[in-house]
């Protein structure tokens, strides 16, 4: 195992032998860009964009893990690389695990986006039910409320009365009938 991992922010007096803990600026910048673009996309309504945002942030986190392992060195195999020049293999193992997990979850979210498209013709993350109820109440009181959050030009007060609301007094049977499997909602 390579050592010298204790420096960043830790003990100022840590002897900094061997590989430097000072991270490469390019990697730090890349992490920053990945996180900012990822967060931007994560705030979108479309599930596909959210997914891309998640992938970007995930990659940023993976890079961060790599940086946490210190500067890159030689292959961490005893007998090939001197111990002082080895890369830290542990972070690479962790990053690999994280990549595999991200892959699986990406597949799942993609299938969910596809299912949403099958059902509704779009893959937008729909409103929280409580939001809808409040929007309906607001619609009853204050018809001029403008919604600027969604891409559609319509406002919540026109949509809220028509939107499907699970908390309404409609029974399960009613809802079932309005949702034939695979059929489009609107």
């Amino acid at each position: 195992m390579s050592g010298y991992l204790l420096a960043a922010g830790g003990d100022p007096a840590t002897p900094d032998a061997g590989l430097s803990m000072t991270p490469s600026l390019a990697l730090v910048l890349a992490i920053g860009v990945l996180f900012t673009t990822g967060v931007y996309l994560l705030l979108e309504r479309s599930l596909t964009r959210v997914l891309i945002g998640f992938i970007l942030i995930g990659n940023g986190a993976n890079l961060l893990l790599l940086v946490a392992g210190g500067r890159a060195g030689g292959a961490p195999i005893v007998g090939i690389t001197p111990v002082e020049q080895m890369s830290d293999p542990l972070v690479q193992a962790m990053v690999l695990t994280a990549i595999v997990i991200t892959l699986g979850l990406t597949a799942f979210v993609l299938s969910m986006a596809y299912r949403s498209w099958q059902l509704h013709g779009h893959d937008e993350v729909q409103d929280d039910l409580e939001d809808r109820r409040i929007a309906r109440i607001a619609a009853a009181n204050q018809p001029s409320y403008e919604d600027t959050d969604t891409e559609e030009s319509g406002s919540l007060d026109t949509e809220a009365p028509t939107v499907r609301d699970e908390t309404s007094t409609l029974g399960r049977d009613d809802r079932r009938r309005r949702h034939p499997d695979g059929g489009r909602d609107e």
């Binding site: 050592g3 010298y4 991992l5 204790l6 960043a8 922010g9 830790g10 803990m21 986190a61 961060l64 893990l65 940086v67 946490a68 392992g69 542990l90 972070v91 962790m94």
Partner: peptide, 9 residues
Amino acid sequence: IALTYGATG
């Protein structure tokens, strides 16, 4: 986790 590892190894 990345920060933890960076700080403590």
